[in-house]
């Protein structure tokens, strides 16, 4: 990604590098530690782990995009966890002003060895803004994570996020969309692929507070070996959230006898009278036999057919990532896991 507008590197939550390109700097884009208490958003269900984060967060790193600014090229953030017995509490805030446009790529990586990371990312799109956030989690296989991604589109703003979970030992992510801006829209695409004895635990909340707000969540995952996928999701439509349009879908492929998935989507609707559309869907199972047979009947060998179908299952999400340059590395990462899974099958 040669055309990036800024590069931000944090290690164990501390800002170690922030380079804002000339063009973006000229537009007033800034990256730096917060100088005062900044919390645009709060995790919806405070618990011991969120308290732990608040107690130990070393500094809050803030990316600011002034109102009306259209940032050319993505802001690339790398959040490194130094592992080896460390606990980390990184905190990133993306504060995009009214009618601004920006794309942020946030890569979570770690050194080898065991560790615990408790990250929080807040993404706020001001009124009429358009923000894309792509978070890719590739932590080491001995790292535990309990993280939060909090997104909130303002009035008539559009906030899209892609959350890709590939690494970690036990990796939990709670994504919460606070739909407090009238006519605001949030799109959330999630992808996870668990192998060995990885646990990927996704939790989601689409909290509709304002009228005409629209949210859509699509989470797709696969598990092989002894891996375990967990999903619990909730759509909440509050009093006053008129003409809400909200959906969540979770689809999981179970690719090994020892692997399993628990999926529990929920709806909680307080304002029942004036909803445009609200619903959820969930499906978990092996690769569809009919799909395999169709490809086989054309002469595609069984194992190749399975690979094509699994790859295609994820590619619906990967191909929607707004940065074409990011799609191929993501495809390679998915393919790597797939190759290992097929080789062991």
């Amino acid at each position: 990604m040669a055309d990036r507008s800024a590069v931000v590197v944090t290690v164990d939550g501390r800002l170690v590098q922030a380079v804002v390109g000339e063009a973006a700097a000229g537009q007033g884009v800034t990256v730096g530690p917060a100088t005062d208490e900044i919390h645009l958003l709060r995790p919806p269900d405070p618990d011991a782990l969120t308290a732990l984060h608040d107690a130990f967060v070393p500094e809050v790193v803030v990316l600011r995009v002034p109102a009306g600014v259209v940032v050319e090229g993505p802001v690339v953030v790398v959040q490194r966890h130094s592992g080896a017995g460390q606990a980390g509490f990184p905190h990133l805030v993306v504060d995009a002003g009214a009618a601004s446009e920006v794309t942020v790529v946030d890569h979570w990586v770690s050194d080898d060895g065991p560790g615990y990371v408790n990250p929080v990312v807040e993404v706020h799109a001001g009124d009429g803004a358009h923000v894309d956030y792509v978070g890719v989690q590739e932590l080491g296989p001995e790292v535990w994570q309990t993280g939060h991604v909090l997104v909130s589109p303002g009035r008539d703003a559009t906030l899209r996020s892609w959350l890709v979970a590939l690494g970690g030992d036990y990796a939990r992510l709670y994504v919460a969309a606070e739909m407090a801006g009238q006519g605001g829209a949030a799109e959330i695409f999630g992808l996870y692929f668990g192998e060995d004895d990885q646990v990927h635990d996704f939790r989601s909340l689409q909290d509709h507070r304002a009228s005409r707000s629209k949210s859509n969540l699509s989470l797709k995952g696969a598990v092989t070996d002894q891996a375990h996928g967990v999903y619990t999701g909730l759509i909440k439509v509050r009093e006053g959230a008129k003409a809400t349009d909200s959906f969540l879908a979770n689809r999981n492929l179970v690719l090994g006898d020892g692997a399993h998935v628990d999926s529990v989507p929920n709806l909680e609707i307080v304002n029942e009278n004036d909803i445009r559309s609200c619903g959820h869907a969930s499906a978990t199972g092996p690769v569809d036999e009919d799909h395999i047979f169709y490809l086989e009947s054309r002469g595609v060998p069984t194992d190749v057919a399975e690979r094509l179908i699994i790859f295609g299952f994820f590619d619906e999400i990967v191909s929607s990532v707004p940065l074409p340059g990011l799609r191929d590395p993501l495809r390679r990462a998915v393919r790597r896991k797939l190759d290992k899974a097929v080789a062991r099958a």
Binding site: H291, L295, V300, P301, I309, G312, F314, E316
Partner: peptide
Amino acid sequence: PTEVPGVSLFETLEEAALAA
């Protein structure tokens, strides 16, 4: 004919040709 989401006609026929 079954819908196969995410899998294209070309890659199917290419894989079939390769295997044959």
